[in-house]
Design a protein around this nucleic acid. Sequence first.
DNA 1: TCGATATAGGACTAAATTAGTACTGTATAA
DNA 2: TTATACAGTACTAATTTAGTCCTATATCGA
Lengths: 151, 151
Amino acid sequence: MLRLSKLTDYATVLLAYMAKTNSHLHTAVELSEATTIHVPTVSKVLKVLSKAGLVYATRGSKGGYQLAQGPEQITVASIIGALEGPVAITECSSQTHDCEQASACEIKGNWGVVNRAIINVLESITLADMMVSQQQYSSEEIQVSWQGLSR
Amino acid sequence: MLRLSKLTDYATVLLAYMAKTNSHLHTAVELSEATTIHVPTVSKVLKVLSKAGLVYATRGSKGGYQLAQGPEQITVASIIGALEGPVAITECSSQTHDCEQASACEIKGNWGVVNRAIINVLESITLADMMVSQQQYSSEEIQVSWQGLSR
DNA sequence: TCGATATAGGACTAAATTAGTACTGTATAA
DNA sequence: TTATACAGTACTAATTTAGTCCTATATCGA
């Protein structure tokens, strides 16, 4: 597993649609029709994205949403961050948490390495990358080198 | 977020303890005392790890658990896989799922790229890596290059 | 062979999280 | 001033996760 929430998934679908049809402001209703996601849910997601600064919102008649940045500037990390908060794969990884098992835990802090490696991946992939093709990539094309443990 | 379950976290703590004290079989009770994780939970986790082949279990009096492989051979991906199933950050990423939004979804399949990049990271880090030090690593030490979208 | 020890497997309950919806408030254009 | 559209918040239902318990099976040693 290691799963993202559905709302995060919806967010990428909505952002991708906006990126493709960049010519005008998109209302929640239009986005719902284009993506088949129910209006209240579209609305919920976009409120969050707006607060996070990923989209601009214009109120009132003739209002709607538009991307605040180009698809090349919007990273997967920023989308996840907007909807789920900072990536923290365990409670240990979260900065604001005091671990109950402190003294017994030998791993303490080392999830941080894994966490940071994942954040790096997520920051290196943008909305534009996710839109380029429906093709499957072979795993040789994804190179990850992790050098955090050399000391 | 993007969070692992607590059981996965417990698993790493238990495996790390076994790796450190490799000289004998460890009963669930001993592991519980060493880690402060309650016995039923220790037991639950180890059953799963045993089924996945990460530890050997010996029943009966004088029985207990031991690592099935060296800490260098046990990857973070295999630990997560044992407790949570294969890494699949969205339903789209899971191979057995048919997406309801199929026709409307432009992202379809492209979460797969992100997913595979994360799997690569998790497969590159071992239990041994997680044990070497309590130090914090700077993020420069973790290099990720992702080349999946060059075509 | 019997009893003590220890894991295997499954079922069940409670807690926490996530998803989805609804309602009230505010801004804007015509 | 009216219709349109987003903002903020609260609430309920559904799902997932955590934790516990019970019964079965295997092994050792007296």
